[in-house]
Amino acid sequence: MNCRRVEKLMPLYVEDDLQPALATRIASHLEWCGRCNWLADEYKESQSWLRASTPPELDRALLDSVKSGALAQIAANSQRPSRWAAFAEHWNRRQMFALSAAALVIVATFVVYLYQTRMKDVRRIESVLKAPDEVPRIDRSPDLNIAPQTALAASLQPERSVRKRIRHSLKGFARADGATEKEELDVAQSQAPVVQDAQSPALSNDSKDMLRIEIQTRDPLIRIIWFAPRESDSPPTKPATD
């Protein structure tokens, strides 16, 4: 054990506040280290100086005054009515009834407000989940070789915020009924078809040789639309995503 560590432990060593094993190590260090010995003596002197202060003498009159003062305060406190009693004595029975009724109405209004706010959220989420077709489609461009990037970006922008809102709301729901967020999303996704193969009426009018393929991803708000020529051996065109 070095002097630095002994110096740190010295305030506890001088009053036997250390574990015996540690105290023995310090004692063996003190046997040969003069500087630490000197430090130990200083601490011992400081401690005896602190203890030299005798407690103040308390005479009978002082003790009696403390005792009588305490008992007088207790008596005064026990005679003083409680806060509720002090509050109630200013009101008669009819006023107390009216006050209680008013408090009850306020509480009930607050509860109804909370319930309605929650139900509003539920309805909004249900409407979003049950109507995935409301997501705008990108089939306005008759020219199939040009990807409508601008329209795609514009249509995706609001969807992201909607998706965030749904996730946020679903967190609250998961807590309410014990289901996790992931389970809720899975339920929502299972309601949407995974793969859809249909021909767009617009395309059938403009280009009858093209096939429109719609793929609904697991996310109800993302749908991949694919246009391919009707010939089986020709390569498909670039996919567009909405």
């Binding site: 407690p55 103040p56 005054s65 305490a70 207790i74």
Partner: peptide
């Protein structure tokens, strides 16, 4: 009272504190 005096370093406060303690 003694402990209160050592904590507060003042006889008046020690007396008041002792009464408050018993309360």
């Amino acid at each position: 009272i003694t402990t209160a005096w050592r904590m507060l370093g003042n006889s008046e406060d020690a007396r008041d504190a002792a009464q408050e303690v018993f309360l």
